[in-house]
Design a protein around this nucleic acid. Structure first.
Lengths: 207, 207
DNA sequence: GTCTATATCCCGATAGAC
DNA sequence: GTCTATCGGGATATAGAC
């Protein structure tokens, strides 16, 4: 029984999760360098030495958190499927991504931090994991365009703009709050935002 | 002659500029906490004590850099003027903002860092300096909409999307480079990006 | 696995001579 | 204005007992 395949998470698995959650919370507010392991341990309610027992270094902890985040980040892309119409697919994608910006603002911010740093940890993963998905989605767009279902756009540029506008609600939340005094937690502002972004992209692809 | 109003910058003015430039460069790559005054001083070719003579604390230096950045950031907004047609104004704004993302990527990234941190330093300035300009521009949009020159959009949401898509080229440059292997320094990619973003927003406001 | 104690290093900032 | 020397604090990480 070298590597037991249990369905119920072990005690140490649960502890790792608690630590990861605490790390995400703090790293996403102050950046990696702005947050100390002391505070992460405190937040996770473990001793610092114990934390280091589970994650041998700060870099290792940071990398673990980031990999979790990347996985979450990829989920909404599944909506972009040739089985759907482009209008449905894009509307669904936008709603899911803005929902993600509301419910996982910390993950979005941490991702943004990492990219600002120049993607030192995630750089390779972007090519290994994101690039293939992106090429796949670009092919779906090409299919929709070729079959006259949507206007011709550069799929890469189109995806960049989709990411930018939807993540903006998480990454620039404090600016939006300073200027509009509104949050995605306000259901009216949430729906308003979804409607606005959806209208922006659907107008563009009208055949 | 208490405060001489000279046009030629004094030696100390020039030194302050060199320090600010070095601080911008380092803060925008690693965040404030990730960069040390030691390295800023080294980059600016002054001793650390001398740096501290000009800027008494790291926070003061950071605040000074940020205020510079905010001023730069506001410039392109001047294009949004009721004297122009909305199409001209928006196209001009987009080109200027993407040019800014190319030529001042470090300033854009530092701004992004500050917002991610929750705008601890710039928070007040956003209300004092950006909010009035934004309200003014919202009025211009309202005028264009009322006179049938553009389709009805929420001006605030519209500006957020404009900022998001254009700044994305600076803030997420390392992601774009990992996926597209292209940079705004490539004139073809630059023009392609301007054309894409412009088409996106002009399609939306078609009356 | 978890703890206490501690090594080691770097950072921001100050003191005081010149 | 600029320098050398240094303080004091906090950070990551390790050693070793239990």
């Amino acid at each position: 029984m070298a590597t037991p395949l249990r369905k119920t998470p072990s005690k140490s698995d649960r502890k790792r999760e608690v630590i990861l959650a605490a790390a995400l919370e703090l790293f996403s507010r102050s950046g990696v360098d702005g947050a100390s392991l002391d505070r992460v341990a405190e937040r996770a309610d473990v001793s610092k030495t114990n934390l280091i027992y589970y994650y041998p270094s700060k870099d290792a902890l940071y990398a673990a958190v980031l990999n979790n985040v990347l996985s979450l980040w990829l989920v909404p892309l599944e909506a972009i499927d040739r089985a759907n119409s482009p209008q449905e697919a894009i509307a669904t994608y936008i709603r899911q991504k803005i929902t993600f910006s509301r419910d996982h603002a910390d993950a979005s911010r941490l991702f943004c931090f990492e990219i600002l740093y120049g993607a030192p940890v995630l750089g390779g993963r972007l090519r290994d994991r994101l690039q293939p998905v992106m090429d796949e989605k670009a092919a779906v767009f090409a299919h929709w365009i070729a079959s006259g279902q949507m206007a011709a756009v550069d799929p890469y540029q189109f995806l960049y703009s989709l990411w930018a506008t939807t993540q903006h609600f998480a990454d620039f939340a404090s600016q939006i709050e300073a200027l509009s005094r509104r949050t995605l937690d306000d259901p009216a502002f949430f729906e308003e935002s979804v409607a606005h972004v959806t209208a922006l992209f659907l107008a563009r692809i009208r055949p």
